[in-house]
């Protein structure tokens, strides 16, 4: 399985409701699991008589940010597939920065898709403790963009 195939597989897997997926093809095996944030590739063992070369495990976390969990924290997730923008236009100040206090209903960012500009508002008042998504980067449906501490 080449890198492009694996990338496509990850893409399909991310959009699915599955938590775990294991696929064997061309004597290689790929196992994907949500939550753990890792991708594992290993040679498939089809016949005991055919030893396959060892493939090293690859560990990756898609984003370097840690998302805190707990009743005090509100995650603001993307309502749609699109591109994440922290400011209303190029060269303009970002709507919010980490550490800012925000009010319920305040605009935090824009997620754009097909030229449709969608403003994302704070669901509750609180402090922005983490901006998880990167400016001008693609975001998936339900991907966490911000964490607010109530």
């Amino acid at each position: 399985m080449d890198l492009n195939e694996i990338k496509k597989l990850i893409d399909i897997f991310e959009k699915s409701d599955l938590n775990e997926l294991e696929i064997e093809k061309d004597n290689s095996k790929v196992r994907l699991r949500k939550g753990g944030g890792f991708i594992e590739t290993a040679p498939a063992v089809r016949h005991a008589a055919v030893p396959a070369p060892a493939t090293p495990k690859a560990a990756a976390t898609p984003k370097g940010k840690v998302i805190p969990e707990g009743d005090n924290y509100i995650k603001i997730n993307s309502p749609m597939v699109g591109t994440f923008y922290r400011s209303p236009g190029e060269g303009e100040d970002p709507y919010v920065k980490e550490g800012d206090m925000v009010q319920k209903g305040q605009v935090l960012c824009i997620v754009e898709a097909m030229k449709l500009m969608n403003e994302i508002e704070a669901e509750a008042s609180g402090k922005i403790i983490s901006i998880v998504a990167e400016n001008a980067a693609p975001v998936e449906y339900d991907e966490t963009l911000f964490v607010i501490e109530k």
Partner: peptide, 25 residues
């Protein structure tokens, strides 16, 4: 024309701009 243009005889006749908000508003 994808995603939001309207053409007549190869020239632009109209366009669409959708703006939305998700959250309390």
């Amino acid at each position: 024309k994808w995603p939001n243009d309207i053409y007549l005889h190869g020239r632009k006749l109209g366009g669409i701009l959708i703006e939305s908000s998700t959250g309390p508003t």
